[in-house]
Design a protein around this nucleic acid. Structure first.
Length: 1048
RNA sequence: GGGCCUAUAGCUCAGUUGGUUAGAGCGCACGCCUGAUAAGCGUGAGGUCGCUAGUUCAACUCUAGCUAGGCCCA
């Protein structure tokens, strides 16, 4: 072991729990010094590869506990596969582009909007973006390191590097060559503040419930003294209104209302205030073609507008059934406008302000103008009714401005063209749990729309399409060689971002004219989705590495990445290789705060991973995240709960080692690896160990991490510590190294060493610290993480024994309850214990002397007896076994139950003795066998009893003087041990003891002389006062006792 | 508004094909143990299994609806 551990002992001490952080630091130093991470990869065969992809985080914010979640899962799986003998390369990655970065830099520089950025200078701005991305990189490195996430941070892929961009370009060109990249106009969610369109997955992050205006306006028909009643929640779009849409099959009515004639859908008359009279009924299609007077003057002369059109999307759930159409500001509107030849007006600029055409509100931000627009409509008598409307509306996920739907020029990937292939590729992916992939993700793919790829921003991979200024031909340039061949004076040093790329002089390969690149950059999700290829600079180099590392066996990120990374990986990978780039995907749930609320920066309830690591260490955090609930469920994070949970397990593991080390050191035990014990409890723990290894392996192979963690925890705490070690302590206390003691050491060592390997992927630090100390010299340059995962040895599993021991444990638990009820402490021996159970499982073990011995010892009773006939001690009754009788009696079950539960004592005895009995149920004679009922036993007389299921334990609680004296002897031993410790003696020190007490106690000392002396390592026992330094006095069973002690 | 998931003890979570004492840990109360000891263990009290209807002899479990939360999509 490296670091500061100076310990000459064979089994060195673990740092105490309160120094767990220092212990983890020591392990980290060891890993560094002996290059363990590198070796864990290099020492594995290239023939046996497990491929893992790291989803690149954006290092422009502090890592939170949710990052610890995915990083723990990733690390756990990778360590596990490594220990299974596989070679797991783990390349780190950083996602560097995108709007979030730009926003942060804008804020830092005090810039507001694109004009100011361009004024500031795009080159310098992008430099600042680059710097900003790596602002938190130190904390990310530190967090990754301290969490124990083994990841190759020295050779990461970085999406803004020239090589990475070049690979992305190559991929884009593949799309281009197959006509999968096109330029179009679409109505897109647009953030006027950021001056950019947002992808659907960006939009989805920003829905909020807001209150918007809800207004009804009256639009006068040109050839009739009547008004269409129209509803909208976006008054500002009314300025761009060019048509009204009705559902052709819907029923509309003319109504007389407040002296006017209004037209609206018959089903929606409820929107009217007060009395109305239905004047006539008409189908929607009969209204088509009617014209009306525009509500605003600026576009009243547009040709082909201001008429009623028919549209399928008109519903009768809201509004009036008459929908206002503004083609530039809604997707349905735009499509309808194209189909029906409506005019297209877009009097809103890219900053979301009205253009000069709208004289009254020119330069005003559209949403801000809403109140004035409403007021204007009111003044002119067009407004029918104005109210508030609460609904869910999208906001920009970064800058929080309301989005508008806006017609923009945009580049798309034609994902709809290969939608079926995406669905097919996804169907072969194993999702954990399956429904996330089969239901949610697959369904979402069904509704696939083309991927809006371009972004009108600065800090991103430039879209590699050039247009010739002369011949107008468009070219997609797929790599640097090609670009260099057609550009003049391509410099040695370059950065492919804007503005460099736009300043190049690029000549048209056709006509030699000057070419200009399209201004856009691309969606950063395309960058991260390209990582299987671009991380290796494929296909310009590393073809062989790519081939070896594609596709991934396993990826894991938060469920919120379904539409993000999981999608972009799939689109790019499947398009290029016709298969999904990942075979297994384990999405994990969001981390909520202790109140169950989402963690967010704005709420201030986010917990930062580094803070938790600093206060509690990695193992605690990792163990808590893995053991508390299935990974895909949302999880509440509570520091207190984490501490309780983790200390329980980690503390027990630590104590198990400390115990072992203490005695193994004294006895100079050195493991031989030969575990040949015929001691029953040794065989039991080895059986349970191998069963646990089997269960954990099965769970991890199915990626059921929580199930695996719980199996380990149950084994370590309940079985190894609370039962095996508890029962075996005395075997280690013996003075000489007997065969049995050696067997205990070998067994305990074997299991403990195995447990460190079993738990190593979960809690890599403590397991490492324990493993190293167990291995001693041999482990000094090694690591538990270089070892193989334990294999379950079937020959060691004894199911019969496990079953019997389960019976023993049940009896012990019940016996303890009896003592508790009777208020007789364990130190007081009891004469006998009677056990009764219907099933053999529960009592079978009593035939085995060794098993019975465990119970005698644990409960401190002299004799154990099974009783078939509870006789006069117990009264019996029966209850039906519903699972059996329910099928037999069906409807008559209730009657049958009543009959059986009402059986008299004699009948029950008859049933138990003969195995069956005839009773009358609903007038029919029925034969009931013992297998069809449950026999219950109650009550004890003069004894104390407790029943647990079909098991009954009875203790004879009568105390004799003899038993009392034995109890006192045990008390004395206990007091003397405490006294030894207070006096500062070592566990193995031999002592002289003197005592002074009454005759009653003298009798105990005489009768149990040998026992007391051997238990407490007394060489000489004296009666009477001494002048030794160490003395104590206390009261026992009402008698005063004085003790003196000194080293022998 | 739609899809998927979740709802069980004060808290965090288990609960196998419907079967009659619904489990664990933490916390709480009481106690035990004390040569793993600034540890350890046990017992107990706590639950109309989110609500409502339905299927069934029997529902925490199946079905439908509702409510609340989460994720995703509009």
């Amino acid at each position: 072991m490296s670091g500061g551990r100076e310990d000459s002992r064979r089994y060195g001490a673990l740092p105490p729990q309160r120094e767990a952080l220092e212990a983890e630091a020591e392990v980290l130093r060891h890993w560094d010094e002996y290059d363990i991470f590198r070796r864990s990869i290099d020492e594995r065969s290239e023939e046996n590869i497990f491929v893992f992809y790291e989803g690149p985080p954006t290092a422009n914010g502090r890592p939170g506990v949710h990052h610890a979640m995915s990083r723990t899962i990733k690390d756990l799986v990778c360590r596990y596969r490594t220990m299974k003998g596989e070679r797991v390369v783990r390349k780190a990655g950083w996602d560097t582009h995108g709007l979030p970065v730009e926003i942060e830099v804008e804020k830092a520089l005090g810039l507001d909007g694109k004009d100011q950025i361009e004024e500031y200078g795009v080159g310098e701005f992008n430099k600042q973006c680059y710097r900003s991305v790596f602002k938190y990189l130190d904390e990310w490195h530190d967090f990754t390191h301290k969490l124990g996430f083994w990841l190759d941070l020295d050779d990461p892929y970085v999406t803004c590097k020239n090589e990475y961009i070049e690979s992305v370009w190559w991929i884009l060109k593949q799309f281009w060559d197959q006509d999968m990249l096109y330029e179009g106009h679409k109505i897109i969610p647009y953030c006027a503040r950021c001056g950019t369109s947002l992808s659907s997955h960006e939009v989805s992050q920003g829905y909020k419930d807001v209150t918007d205006p809800s207004i009804f306006i009256k639009l006068k028909l040109t050839d009739e003294d009547a008004y269409f009643l129209v509803w909208t929640t976006t008054p500002w779009t009314l300025i761009s209104n060019v048509a009204l849409a009705v559902g052709p099959e819907h029923d509309y009515v003319r109504v007389g209302h407040r002296g006017e004639t209004l037209i609206l859908a018959g089903e929606l008359l409820g929107v009217l205030d007060g009395e109305y009279e239905v004047l006539g009924k008409v189908k929607g299609r009969e209204l088509v073609g009617k014209t009306y007077e525009p509500c605003f003057p600026w576009f009243k002369d547009e040709e082909g507008g201001f008429r009623v059109i028919s549209a399928g999307f008109v519903t009768l759930t809201d509004g009036t059934g008459i929908v206002h159409i503004a083609p530039a500001f809604g997707e349905d509107d735009y499509i309808a406008g194209m189909e029906q030849g409506l005019p297209f007006v877009q009097p809103v600029d890219t900053e979301g302000k009205f253009t000069p055409e709208v004289t009254k509100w020119a330069g005003r931000f559209i949403k801000d103008a809403d109140p004035e627009i409403i007021e204007d409509l009111r003044e002119r008598g067009i407004l029918y009714h104005a109210a508030k409307y609460e609904h869910s509306y999208p906001f920009c996920w970064r800058c929080d401005s309301p989005l508008i739907y806006y017609a923009r020029r945009s580049w798309y990937i034609r994902t709809t063209a290969f939608k079926d292939m995406l669905i097919e590729a996804n169907s072969k992916v194993h999702w954990y749990p399956p429904e996330v992939g089969e239901n949610r993700f697959a369904r979402w793919l069904e509704g696939n729309v083309d991927w809006a790829l371009s972004r009108e921003r600065y800090w991103g991979t430039p879209l590699n399409i050039w247009t010739c200024d002369s011949c107008e031909e468009k070219y997609c340039i797929g790599d640097l060689t090609e670009l260099k061949s057609i550009s003049e004076q391509f410099p040695e040093e370059y950065d492919l971002h804007k503005p460099f790329i736009d300043n190049l002089d690029v000549g048209c390969p056709e006509c030699g004219g000057k070419m200009t690149r399209v201004p856009e950059v691309i969606d950063c999700w395309f960058d991260s989705g390209a990582m299987p290829f671009a991380q290796h600079h494929y296909p310009m180099e590393n073809m062989d590495i790519f081939k070896q590392q594609y596709p991934a066996e396993f990826i894991s990120e938060g469920v919120d990445q379904s539409r993000g990374w999981f999608y972009s990986l799939l689109v790019i990978g499947a398009f290029l290789t016709k298969q999904s780039p990942y075979k297994r995907c384990l999405p994990h749930g969001m981390i909520l705060d202790r109140e169950g609320r989402k963690m967010s920066k704005s709420k201030g309830n986010a917990v930062f991973a580094s803070d938790v690591l600093k206060s509690d260490g990695a193992d605690s955090l990792r163990w808590y995240l893995m053991i508390s609930g299935a990974p895909y469920l949302p999880k509440r994070f509570d520091l207190e709960a984490m501490r309780d949970n983790a200390n329980k397990f980690l503390g027990t593991l630590r104590n198990l080692y400390s115990f072992f080390a203490m005695y193994a050191e004294i006895d100079g035990f050195e493991p031989t690896g030969r575990v040949m014990s015929d001691n029953l409890i040794d065989r039991w723990i080895l059986s349970r160990y191998n069963s646990t290894v089997h269960d954990v392996t099965a769970a991890l192979d199915e990626y059921e991490i929580t199930r695996a963690a719980r199996a380990i925890q149950t084994f370590v705490i309940d079985e190894l510590s609370n039962w095996y070690l508890r029962r075996c302590r005395r075997r280690f206390w013996k003075n000489e190294m007997s065969g049995d003691k050696l067997a205990a050491y070998e067994t305990f060592y074997t299991v403990l060493e195995g447990v460190t390997r079993l738990a190593a992927p979960f809690v890599p630090f403590l397991t490492e610290a324990v493993w190293q100390r167990l291995r001693g010299e041999a482990g000094k340059s090694g690591s538990v993480h270089l070892e193989l995962f334990p294999a379950s040895d079937r020959a060691m599993i004894d199911e019969e024994l496990e079953k019997n021991m389960a019976g023993v444990l049940k009896v012990v638990t019940t016996g303890r309850a009896v003592r508790n009820n009777a208020a007789i402490k364990i130190r007081t021996p009891l004469a006998r214990m009677l056990v009764h159970g219907k099933y053999h499982d529960v009592t079978e073990w009593t035939k085995d002397g060794e098993l019975a011995g465990l119970v005698l010892d644990e409960l401190n009773v002299k004799v154990i007896e099974t009783i078939d006939d509870t006789g006069e001690l117990i009264r019996m009754s029966v209850k039906p076994e519903y699972s059996v009788l329910g099928k037999r009696f069906g409807k008559n079950m209730k009657a049958a139950a009543a009959v059986l539960e009402g059986l008299g004592v004699e009948s029950v005895v008859e049933l138990v003795e003969k195995g069956q009995i005839t009773v009358e149920i609903e007038g029919k004679k029925e034969s009931i066998s013992l297998e069809e009922v449950k026999v219950e036993s109650e009550t004890a007389e003069g004894f104390e009893s407790e029943s647990e299921g079909d098991l009954t334990v009875i203790l004879d609680t009568k105390l004799t003087d003899e038993l009392r004296r034995e109890g006192s002897a045990r008390d004395l031993v206990n007091r003397i041990q405490n006294f030894r410790k207070e006096s500062g003696f070592e566990v193995s020190d031999r002592i002289e003891l003197a005592w002074r007490a009454t005759d009653e106690i003298r009798q105990v000392f005489e009768e149990y002389h040998d026992h007391i002396c051997s238990e407490t390592l007394v060489e000489d026992l004296h009666e009477g006062e001494q002048d030794w330094e160490n003395s104590t006095s206390f009261e026992l069973d009402g008698f005063q006792i004085d003790l003196w002690v000194k080293l022998a």
